[in-house]
């Protein structure tokens, strides 16, 4: 990892502090994010792992400032970029950061791209609007960016439309768009979920190369434990709008410190699980309108103990080495002393 010299001690490139997000619906308040904190430094990859509805994408949208408000509401929390709170700054200043300092790529490239403009036009639009570049210069730069993301014959394809590209190539176009302004933070929201494995491998390689070459911080949002193990430096596991475990990637796969992480990891089919039943997590993710009391995972947890788990919300326990776990029995879990 490269060393950023001018960075004051303890200040991160991006830091989310105790963020809360609610959605107002006809049936009541849905508490989607309930106190999320994480940070990101230049040149590293933070994986945010979670199942659908865990709030991983909503956190990213809050960072980008693309949440629809209303129905969403941010009652409290801070999002610090280079020490400045994005949530407190005027919209104009925030606009300058969005897309140029922090940018985002989405899961489905076909619906994220505009079908009636050529890809060259779409990539160069940011440059024209943001930097006032001339049309010709911006197109030239767009071709360079397409080259950077390894689209073959970039110059010739600049006038092509999104439907003329394959799924993997479309994803590359979107990455080129996100890189147009040399962002410091790249948020990738399930960037390969819609792609085939061989193409997924190509795109993940590309993202890893770009992150290293451009020294970007990358937030990788995914539900795929395989992809995470491949590229991430650190992992934040989310459940019901909270980060329940946060650790170095090697540590977490070796010995999870939260029952949910353990459940997730053991439910992947493996070589030695052949012919046996897969381990499952019983029950369903909670309804965000009616979150359980105490630990949000307690109704599904095999280690649940009354009354502490049902009554007390577990704090994020510091386990040393930057590792935290929001489980009352995290230390016992790490020591292998917890039994069903």
């Amino acid at each position: 990892m490269q060393v950023e010299t001018a960075r004051p001690v303890g200040r991160h490139l991006l830091e989310v502090r105790d963020l809360f997000v609610e959605f107002h619906t006809r049936d009541g308040e849905a508490k989607v994010i309930n106190g999320v904190s994480y940070h990101l430094d230049p040149g590293e990859t933070l994986a945010v792992l979670g199942e659908s509805g865990s709030g991983k994408s909503v956190t990213a949208q809050a960072i980008m400032g693309i949440l629809d408000m209303p129905p969403a509401r941010i009652p409290s929390g801070q999002i610090l970029y280079n020490g400045e709170d994005l949530l407190a700054m005027p919209e104009e200043k925030r606009r300058a950061i969005r897309g140029s300092e922090i940018s985002m790529i989405f899961q489905d490239a076909l619906s994220a791209l505009n079908p009636v403009f050529s890809v060259g036009w779409q990539i160069s639009e940011t440059l024209r609007v943001r930097t006032g570049m001339s049309k010709a210069d911006a197109l030239k730069r767009a071709a360079e960016l397409m080259d950077l993301v390894k689209i073959p014959a970039a110059k010739a394809r600049i006038k092509d439309y999104p439907h003329q590209f394959s799924g993997g190539m479309r994803q590359r176009v979107m990455i080129a768009m996100a890189l147009a302004m040399d962002p410091k933070v790249l948020i990738a929201d399930e960037p390969t979920t819609a792609l085939d494995v061989t193409v997924q491998a190509q795109i993940m390689d590309l993202l890893a190369d770009l992150r290293r070459d451009l020294n970007m911080g990358m937030i990788l949002i995914t539900h795929d434990l395989g992809v995470v193990a491949d590229v991430a430096d650190r992992i934040a596991v989310m459940y019901a709008g909270r980060i329940i475990e946060h650790a170095d990637v090697h540590a977490i796969y070796k010995q999870p410190a939260h029952p949910y992480t353990e459940g997730l990891i053991s439910s992947i089919p493996r070589l030695n699980s052949k012919g046996q039943e897969l381990a499952t997590i019983k029950g369903l993710p909670p309804n965000l309108m009616r979150l359980p009391s105490g630990c949000k995972y307690h109704p599904r947890c095999p280690y649940m103990q009354q009354p502490i788990c049902t009554d007390v919300v577990p704090p994020a326990l510091d386990l040393g080495g930057g590792r935290t776990s929001a489980c009352h029995f995290a230390k016992e879990m790490l020591d292998g002393q917890l039994h069903r």
Binding site: M204, G226, V228, A229, Y253, I265
Partner: peptide
């Protein structure tokens, strides 16, 4: 090309691109 859910396998995985 299938990602392996084991970060320690990263170094010695031989992915055919």
């Amino acid at each position: 090309a299938v990602p392996v859910p084991d970060p320690d396998a990263r170094a010695h995985r031989d992915v055919i691109r």
